[in-house]
Amino acid sequence: MSALWTSDAIAAATGGTTQGSFDCNGVAFDSREIGPGDLFFAMTGEQADGHDFVERAFASGAAGAVVNRAVDGPHILVPDTLKALEDLGKASRARVDAKIIGVTGSAGKTGTKEALFAALDRFAQGKAHRSVKSYNNHVGVPLSLSRMPADTRFGVFEMGMNHEGELAALTRFVRPHVAIVTTIAPAHIAYFRDEAAIADAKGEIFEVLEPGGTAILPFDNGQYARLRAKAEKHAAHIVSFGFGEGADVRCIDHVTSADGGTLVTAKLPHGLLCYALSQPGAHWVANSLAVLAAVEAVGGDLAQAGLALAEMEGLKGRGERTTIQVAGGTALLIDESYNANPASMTATIGQLGKTPATRRVVVLGAMRELGARSDEYHADLLQPLNEAG
């Protein structure tokens, strides 16, 4: 297997100076995540300086490091390690002949990204790549790009934001052929005028679409028309998904399956597709429709995508289900602890109400960054909580 990066290629991409020759097969900026053969970026942050952990990184097997001051061990010396990471991400994007998909939205980004990766990896085994965890910010996106092998056929990248202009900057790194907006909801609304402003910020993902690019939009969302108007300025093709009459990729039927998942019948522009979805809930049905639209847009296989959706396991912190022992028997633990906003809370509580149980208990954390209406958004959860029992 050829190396992900050679020291010469890293130096060429970053404009750095090589001290010692090396090859690497992975990239990380957290010394705790370093494995044998990885490249360690010593990032300088508000809380810590990565240069203090270079020795630990080498002890964990790092092949080399990118630093802004000389260290013991093979390294690339650069003036600014964050810019070097950005430059390596850009070089990675430039060297691949792959279909690139960007995913954003107020909720469902990570699940949609993971489902899309599973669908494309099943079709082109070992040739699909995606951002790991929720690395979707100004550091995580270039890191995820830098980890993309040169022979990748499909790349899927999650992008997040909580301020105007952030998504446009991230999209310039990713340069997607397909851009998905999962939904618009009052997440991070403390930093925006209203949901229309959130839609405008999410719509920045369309601004750097590659020529002939496709925008995939949530048809049932209240901001659909606004998103579409933005997409029409930049996208050659627009595909809508949802439950409503008129959606290009539309769920025409969905029922709960015996194993707790969902059986879905979807109408696509060129026919019907019936598939099983391992994850429960209408929000996951909507996510799966966006996945199908993207798979078709990049020339993937819809039948393989359907099989992948049926086999997806629950994501840690995003609906993972575990049976645990409790006094007197067993209980089903549903882990939705990663993040919280009004849309994801309502969807999760609603799905809990449909889950067979003799007793239901929810442990809720606060929803953050909701601004002046925070109390109202929290109080609004009373209705779905009551309906869920």
Rank of each mutant, 00 (worst) to 15 (best):
D72I: 02
L332E: 14
T330W: 09
G165N: 06
A128C: 07
T330K: 15
L4M: 08
Y224W: 07
R321W: 14
I205S: 03
R226F: 13
L88C: 05
K267L: 04
V141M: 03
G165P: 12
L272A: 05
H75Y: 08
R95V: 09
H237W: 02
V67S: 04
G105S: 11
A179S: 13
L385Q: 12
D72Y: 00
R147V: 01
A282L: 08
I184F: 14
A276H: 14
P280I: 02
G213P: 04
K127I: 02
S21H: 15
G108P: 11
F243G: 02
A115G: 11
Q19G: 11
H234E: 01
M148D: 09
V181T: 06
A187I: 06
F192G: 00
E158T: 03
G20T: 09
K267A: 13
G20Q: 13
L333V: 12
V363A: 15
P342R: 02
N287I: 05
N341V: 14
G16T: 05
E86F: 02
H138D: 11
V181K: 03
A185I: 06
A201Y: 08
I101N: 04
Q351A: 14
P79W: 00
L217S: 03
V103S: 06
L272I: 01
D52V: 00
A231P: 04
P280W: 05
N136Y: 06
G15R: 03
H254Q: 06
G15M: 01
M161E: 01
F123N: 10
G26K: 00
P74C: 10
R69A: 15
E369Q: 10
T355P: 03
L382T: 11
L333R: 14
N287V: 06
S7M: 07
F157T: 01
R175S: 12
F157D: 01
A11M: 05
R56Q: 08
P211I: 00
H51A: 02
G45D: 11
L4V: 07
V156L: 06
N386Q: 13
A12M: 09
A366F: 08
D97Y: 07
G389Q: 12
